[in-house]
């Protein structure tokens, strides 16, 4: 489904990601783990088209999207939830969601059905529909960004640290929701520092450190690797 080969990313003279290769199969939930600064977010942004790759290739269902810009990537069926939780703060919740469906803006009926589905998944968003997104709580904003990404009806979803800075109870809810999405057949690449939570929902995982992949395997294998967290995840 998603196939990354030899991907390298530069920030000016700094090379943040060095020849990373991994893949995500159809319907799979793969987790990308690693300490701060490992290069996870850079990888995500690059797949989403927001950063240019210096080397390597990105294939989505066999199509080369390495050089695609962000607006082409989403049209190819890959939606991204960046770690910065970018709601449009001045726009209402409804407007944010409407923009999520930008690429389907001609299909009003489909959008309305999709919105209803998402409102049952995130009832809070239905209540806050006409409120500016900037006034939502952190957890609600995270829900909104995920729901907004789903409005594009993607076949692959990239989630960058959805649990960042949220209270445990809400993190719990978010992971439940990720499981639900996985059951619905969505292909998901999940970046997390919350190793245990991530491994509990993931099929497979890769561990990144200083811009390279240093371990990979099924969730079980990664979990059982001794001292994993001490070595690679900085505790």
């Amino acid at each position: 489904m998603l196939e990354i080969t030899g991907l390298s990313i530069n920030y000016g003279a700094i090379r943040a990601v060095r020849g990373v290769s991994f893949s995500v199969g159809k319907g799979e939930l793969v987790s990308l783990l690693g300490a701060n600064g490992a290069g996870k977010s850079s990888t995500i942004k690059c797949i989403a088209g927001a950063l240019k790759a210096a080397e390597g290739s990105i294939l989505l269902e066999g199509r080369d999207i390495t050089a695609a810009n962000p607006e082409q990537v989403i049209r190819a069926g890959l939606a991204t939830v960046p770690e910065t939780r970018d709601v449009f703060p001045d726009l209402t919740v409804a407007e944010n969601l409407m923009l999520g469906a930008y690429i389907h803006r001609r299909d009003q009926v489909g959008n309305r059905q999709n919105l209803e589905k998402l409102h049952t998944l995130f009832p809070r968003l239905a209540e806050r529909s006409s409120q500016p997104a900037g006034t939502l709580s952190g957890g609600e904003q995270q829900m909104l960004v995920i729901a907004r990404a789903l409005m594009a009806r993607p076949s692959v979803l990239l989630l960058d640290e959805p649990s960042l800075g949220l209270a445990p109870a809400i993190v719990e809810r978010i992971f439940e929701m990720i499981e639900t999405l996985k059951k619905s057949g969505l292909t998901i690449l999940l970046v997390e520092q919350n190793v245990n939570q991530a491994l509990s929902v993931a099929d497979r995982a890769y561990v990144m450190r200083l811009g390279t992949i240093v371990a990979s395997g099924t969730a079980e294998e990664i979990r059982s690797t001794s001292d994993l967290s001490a070595h690679y995840l900085g505790g």
């Binding site: 962000p70 607006e71 989403i74 001045d90 726009l91 409407m98 923009l99 803006r105």
Partner: peptide
């Protein structure tokens, strides 16, 4: 939609593009 997309782009251009604008 165009106007709302323009307002969105004014706060966060990259995010707007990632939604397909």
């Amino acid at each position: 939609t165009l106007g709302i997309a323009m307002r969105a782009a004014a706060t966060n251009f990259t995010m707007a593009r990632m939604l397909g604008v």
